[in-house]
Write a protein that binds this DNA or RNA. Structure first.
Lengths: 250, 250
DNA sequence: CGGCGGATTGAAGGGAATCAATGCTTGTGG
DNA sequence: CCACAAGCATTGATTCCCTTCAATCCGCCG
C-alpha cells in the first residue's frame, strides 16, 4: 500500500541544455500572451474546437481537462490526446489552417484562447518559437508512446498505463498530492482512448478492483497498490526520460 | 481495374493562407542548410539514430525509406512513423536533447544529416521556424490519424490503409506514376507498424490477393482494384484535407 | 416517479495470437 | 555447383482476448 512513500515517476524530460534559458523566456512570453485574453468556462461535454473549424485558436487550460477526438466516417470515435491544466492544445493550428479533430471539455473547463495569427507574430521571438517546438515535441513523444502501447499491449496494461500516466502527469505538475484523482472520462471515453469497447473497459476495471490494485468509481480513480500497478505496466516505456543529473534549477 | 484513371487522393493540406510565402522561403533555407552537409548512404537495416543518442541530428531523406521504431521493455517492437524521400525525421531533437526511439533504414538509404544546434540557430529566420512547426504539425496529423486507425479499425482495414496511404504519399510527391511501389517492409515490420502479428499480416495479405484487390510480393505492392480498396478503407479519415480552392500556385 | 446516460454482467461468437511445422529465396562456403 | 544456413513467408490447429448483443442496474435530474 501507499504509505506516503514518493512513488512518483522519474525526472522530467531533459531538454538540450543550451536551450533551457530560451525555453523559460519563451514560455513566459507565451503565458503572458494568453493572459491578455479573457478566461472562459464551459461545462463538461462542450466542443471547444469543432472538427472543421478554420483558423482555429490555441487553447491554454487552467482548470479541468479536455481531450482531442476524431470521429471516423462510420461513426466510431477515437480520443487521441488528453489535456490537463497548463497544457496547450491546438499547436497544429499555427501552421495548418484547418482543424482535423475536435477538442472537447472532459470536465468543467476553464481556459483561455489565443488566435493562431498572434502566435505567428509572437514567433519572431526566438524563445517563443523554440517553446512552441518543444511543446510540439512533447506531444509527439506522448503520442509515439501511446501508439506503441495501443499497438503492442493488452487492454489490462493499457488501462493500468492510463491510470499511472495520468497520476504521474498530474503529480509531476503539482496538481495532486495523494493517490486519488479525477479521471474525468466515462468508460466509453476510456475505450475510445485505449481501443477496447466500454464493456471490456468495465470488465478490466472490475478485475483491477478485485485485485486491489486500483479503483475507478464514477470517474474518480484511486491507485491502491503502486508497486503492483507499476509492475503491471512494466511493458510500457517510461513516461518521462530516465533520471539524470539535474540540468538547471530555473 | 485501374484503367489509367487518376485515382489519387484529394489535394494537399491547406496551410493558413497568410503563411504560405513564409513557408516556402523557410523550406528553401532549410533545404539549403541540409545541402551543406555530405550525402550518406547506408544499407537496409542500418540504425541511423540510436534509441539513446544524445543531441541527435535531423535527417533529410533523399532516396529509400526509413522508419521510427520503439523497443518496449519486454522486447516487443512498435514502428510509429514511416519516412519517405523529402521527409525530415527527428524534428523532436531540436528541443529535446535525447532521442527516445530509433530511426532505421527500411531500404538502401540516401540521406543528409543536420545537427540540431544548426537548426536552433537557423530558427532565427522566421520562415524556418514556421516551416519546422508546420512539419511537426503534419507529423502530428499523421500520427493522430494512425492512432485512430490502430485503435478503431480491424487488421484488414489497417493493411488496406497502409497500402493506400503509402501510394497516396508517394504519388502526391511525384515519386511513382503507376500502381506499383516498393513498400520496403517485411511482414514483421508491417505488423509492428499496424499492431497485428506477422502471421496475421500474412493471412490478411493472402485474403487481399485472393480477392484481387492488392498484391504484396517480396515487399513490392501492387494495387489492383483501387475502387474496392478505397471502399474497404472507407472507415479511415482521408489522408489529406478535402479538396479546396487552390490557395497559391507557388 | 419516470426517464436517461452510464456501468455492470452474462452468453455467444469472432478476430487475432500462439505454437509449430513447412516452404521459399538468397547468400555463403565447401 | 551443390549443400547448407538464415531470414522471411505460409499455413494449419488451437487457444484466448475481446466484441457483440442484450438485459439489468444504478444514480441523478426534471
Amino acid at each position: 500500500l501507499d504509505r506516503g512513500i514518493n512513488w512518483s515517476a522519474p525526472l522530467p524530460s531533459p531538454y538540450a541544455p543550451e536551450v533551457t534559458e530560451d525555453l523559460l523566456a519563451g514560455g513566459r512570453l507565451l503565458r503572458e500572451a494568453f493572459y491578455q485574453s479573457p478566461r472562459f468556462t464551459e461545462p463538461r461535454g462542450t466542443v471547444i474546437i469543432g472538427p472543421d473549424d478554420h483558423d482555429a485558436p490555441l487553447l491554454l487550460i487552467h482548470k479541468g481537462s479536455a481531450y482531442a477526438r476524431r470521429t471516423l466516417p462510420d461513426g466510431k470515435r477515437a480520443i487521441t490526446e488528453l489535456f490537463w491544466p497548463r497544457d496547450i492544445a491546438g499547436l497544429e493550428h499555427i501552421a495548418i489552417g484547418a482543424s482535423y479533430r475536435e477538442v472537447v471539455a472532459a470536465a468543467a473547463l476553464s481556459y483561455r484562447l489565443l488566435p493562431s495569427h498572434v502566435l505567428r507574430t509572437l514567433m519572431a521571438e526566438r524563445g517563443v518559437a523554440l517553446k512552441l517546438l518543444s511543446l510540439a515535441a512533447e506531444a509527439h513523444l506522448r503520442m509515439d508512446r501511446h501508439l506503441a502501447a495501443i499497438g503492442r499491449l493488452e487492454a489490462r496494461e493499457r488501462v493500468g498505463g492510463l491510470l499511472l500516466d495520468t497520476y504521474d502527469r498530474l503529480r509531476h505538475n503539482g496538481l495532486i498530492a495523494r493517490s486519488t484523482f479525477n479521471l474525468n472520462l466515462t468508460q466509453n471515453e476510456i475505450g475510445d482512448h485505449l481501443g477496447p469497447t466500454s464493456v471490456h473497459i468495465s470488465r478490466t476495471l472490475r478485475q483491477l478492483r478485485k485485485e486491489k490494485i486500483a479503483l475507478v468509481y464514477r470517474q474518480v480513480a484511486v491507485i491502491i497498490d503502486f508497486a503492483r500497478l507499476r509492475e503491471m505496466v512494466a511493458g510500457l516505456p517510461p513516461l518521462f526520460f530516465p533520471a539524470e543529473p539535474v540540468l538547471n534549477a530555473g
